[in-house]
Design a protein around this nucleic acid. Structure first.
Lengths: 335, 335
DNA sequence: CCATTTTACGCAATCGTTTGCGTAAATTAA
DNA sequence: TTAATTTACGCAAACGATTGCGTAAAATGG
């Protein structure tokens, strides 16, 4: 009973001696089709396993009922959880979610954004790579009403939708906790300078130090882009020259690099140096000695971002009101 | 200079007093368009930032130049690496990769497959959830020539493309290693029964035991589906009744569940029980005591699977020749 | 110089849907 | 009974791109 190629409306219309438009309306349960005809068409369509061609539908209706999400890396648990939150909301509203990863390459990111626009995604969730200005450029040039919600790494202006966690507070709390553990020479392994999360986390870190009467030593602050190499160089240099007694790491990857670097040190330093870092890795709590974790409410961030996006997609001509949601992160695994 | 809505061919044709077809051909560098006209059209198109509408192109050409990959969970490093391998190959050939996750739900999987078919993906990479027969059913019913390559969890028949790692050998090696460490009561935490990877890994495990003159104790073999609950129950039961001196875990998740359960045991068992498990988690080597890891060549698996898929997509009328690739996995972190 | 080919473009169909409009037949209203 | 309305369907345009075919004008051949 399975056909060689997908059956289309005209196949049904021929088989039933009806016009294509009647078949279409019957399947869409239009009121201007007789009940009897509807039954015939619908049951026949079910028998031959008719599925509307989404490409054709999209072309006609100018929407695709899918949203795209662009993240740096799906293997990063933080982003994976965000994706799950997005899927949760989107699927409930009949939208599919298409996932892209940039691997922190601005070039890839730009290509993906262009492609998303050309494929007419109904909306975009974006956590931009480093180069904010270039991304802005592209967002302008696609010349479409592509609704966007930024999350995690967000632009500084207020004319866009944003969902973030309270990076300042989280960094403040984490650093304060390290200070309470008696640490004074706290190094900060920061992400790329210039992006929102780096700025806010650095601010929280600095505030906590000053708050405790510790001066901020620029030598202990190291920016790493997303190459492992940079992080390792920074870590080696820090150990050689400054021997921090604690590390505050600004990302999943940096947390684990720190941890590994510290574990390789000779005792007793290896077990004395404390590390706290941003990570949503589900098994981080298994590490001994502990890696204290700043855990972001990633699933909720995804849910909220998706809700904001779908709202702006459906609320057509309503006047735009930009949202800015900030959620708290929690410090875990501090015994 | 940026327009309100995306510019289309007819916009260009009006602006330049040319027909739509001429514009189209000029942009596609057709030989039947004069060089001068081409230059004019192309430069104008560049100026107004023209991008072909991929929906329209897809409808016309009946291909979309994207492939879909369906995995259980993107946060699982094994699958994330596979995705990266797929992207590597696909992007090089001008294809985009769309990622879907099933969360190990057959229902979700089926919906996704249907959607992929309706959206006319050019091909599909599939690691099916448990219910093989239901999935087969759907694959038939979509009635399209949708090329498929299976990976990791694959059907048993030979009339499809498959990419796997040598699960039997890997399980054999891992179990043998545990035996060489002096372990005799080796529990096997298996995935869902009935799927290819579970069967092969169980076979390798059993063969290694028999090979060492150890009889296979069915009580030490536990199948867990993908709920954490089942795994925990199995682990607790094993500890209460049989107290294995080693665990062989069949998946990323099971490996970490095992590890966590064992770490919670009172000493000296906690540090005596050895664990070896399938995992591609990048930081597994940081755990102390060690978690020995069977690492699959996930990136290569993804690359090969994508190559197979793109081959069958492009080689149109060639007679189908089904491929079955098996790659070796390596045992790491065994000091 | 005329016939033939080539060049360079336009017309219109097509991909599979949806939908505005037109219209017979059936129903209702007056 | 006739006019007005409703019901139930078909025709054809549209979405934005590609492409087979037709055809003037230009280039070439003998």
């Amino acid at each position: 009973m399975d056909q060689e190629r997908p059956v289309k409306l005209s196949d049904i219309s021929k088989a039933l001696n009806l016009s294509v438009s009647t078949v279409s309306r019957a399947l869409n349960d239009s009121h201007e089709i007789g009940e009897e005809t509807k039954r015939i068409v619908q049951s026949y369509a079910a028998r031959v396993n008719y599925r509307p061609n989404l490409i054709a539908q999209s072309l006609k209706e100018m929407n695709t009922r899918y949203i795209a999400i662009i993240v740096p890396e799906i293997s990063n648990s933080f982003f994976a959880e965000i994706v799950n939150g997005v899927e949760f909301v989107a699927n409930n509203q009949g939208y599919h979610v298409v996932i892209y990863q940039t691997h922190d390459s601005t070039e890839r990111e730009i290509n993906i954004i262009r492609d998303v626009a050309r494929r007419k995604a109904d909306g975009l969730l974006l956590s931009p790579s480093t180069n904010q200005t270039e991304v802005n450029e592209v967002m302008k040039s696609i010349g479409a009403k592509l609704p966007v919600v930024y999350f995690d790494r967000v632009p500084s202006d207020n004319y866009c939708h944003k969902v973030v966690c309270d990076n300042y507070q989280a960094a403040f709390d984490a650093t304060t906790w390290l200070i309470k553990q008696g640490k004074r020479r706290i190094a900060h392994m920061a992400g790329p300078s210039g992006i929102s999360i780096s700025i806010e986390r650095l601010a929280g870190y600095s505030a906590a130090l000053l708050n405790a009467g510790i001066s901020v030593d620029p030598n202990l602050i190291r920016y790493s882009n997303f190459l492992a190499r940079e992080a390792w160089d920074n870590l080696r240099d820090l150990e050689e020259k400054y021997q921090p007694d604690a590390y505050f790491a600004s990302s999943d990857r940096l947390s684990f690099y720190c941890y590994e670097a510290v574990q390789k040190l000779p005792e007793p330093r290896a077990s004395e140096v404390k590390i706290v870092g941003f990570t949503n890795a589900p098994f981080a709590h298994l590490l001994r000695p502990k890696l204290s974790a700043i855990v972001q409410p990633a699933f909720d961030m995804g849910k909220i971002a998706a809700e904001m996006l779908l709202n702006t997609i459906t609320k057509k001509n309503k006047d735009i009101e930009y949202g800015f949601i900030k959620l708290p992160a929690v410090l875990k695994n501090t015994e």
